[in-house]
């Protein structure tokens, strides 16, 4: 049975690694529903959060294939209930329509959203939440003519699991290891081509 699974990957911050990570999904013909990547709290370590709609078996396979990549430090998959997750959505609304309908403030209040920017022609609204919540606001705002809409990839933390935390603790413990210091010293220092 297919379900949403969130895959959390910790990697070295190296050029081309996203390509390698994505190739693993492509080979298994898994569609990536959402992706977010940023530096983690640990310098030089990137954290990717990907969402796939798949069988648990395939989620397991993809994680093993990811961990096989040399520069992947840790890969894990999580069920929805095991995560705290959020997406951010931005909505650009027509000012003319907003002015016509004064209920906008109560809609925003109801959905715990806020206005980021007001211009003569439009208003930009921000909402953080799950996809269901940002989608609900989308539907509620439709009468105000949504000129533009964007939703970010999911970011997630894992209160139910120590796996990721343990990976960070491990990295922390390794920090003073002479081998790690040595490795860092020789890590890519090449100037960018351009």
């Amino acid at each position: 049975m297919k379900n949403p699974y969130t895959i959390v990957i910790l990697t070295e911050n190296h050029i081309g690694l996203l390509h390698r990570v994505v190739t693993v999904f492509t080979r298994l013909r898994l569609n990536i529903e959402s992706i977010a990547a940023s530096e983690s709290q640990f310098e030089g370590v990137h954290r990717y959060t990907l969402v796939i709609h798949e069988t648990e078996e395939n989620a397991q396979k993809v994680v093993k294939q990811l961990e096989k990549q040399i520069e992947v430090i840790k890969a894990s998959f999580f069920r929805e209930a095991e995560l705290i997750y959020r997406e951010i959505a931005l909505y650009k609304l027509s000012m003319a329509r907003v002015l016509e309908n004064e209920k906008i403030n109560s809609v925003l209040h109801q959905h715990d959203a806020r206005i980021l920017l007001i211009k003569n022609e439009f208003v930009i609204v921000e909402k953080t939440g799950t996809k269901i919540e940002t989608q609900a606001l989308y539907e509620a705002l439709e009468p105000y003519e949504i000129l533009e809409f964007v939703r970010s990839g999911r970011v997630a933390l894992t209160p139910a699991s120590d796996e990721i935390l343990e990976a960070f603790r491990h990295l922390q413990r390794q920090q003073d290891d002479p081998l790690v210091i040595e490795e860092k010293r020789y890590a890519c220092t090449a100037p960018s081509a351009n």
Binding site: T11, Q174, E183, Y186
Partner: peptide, 9 residues
């Protein structure tokens, strides 16, 4: 130089 350690591997 001799590498025998990679922290992610």
């Amino acid at each position: 130089k001799s590498v025998a350690f990679i922290r992610s591997y």
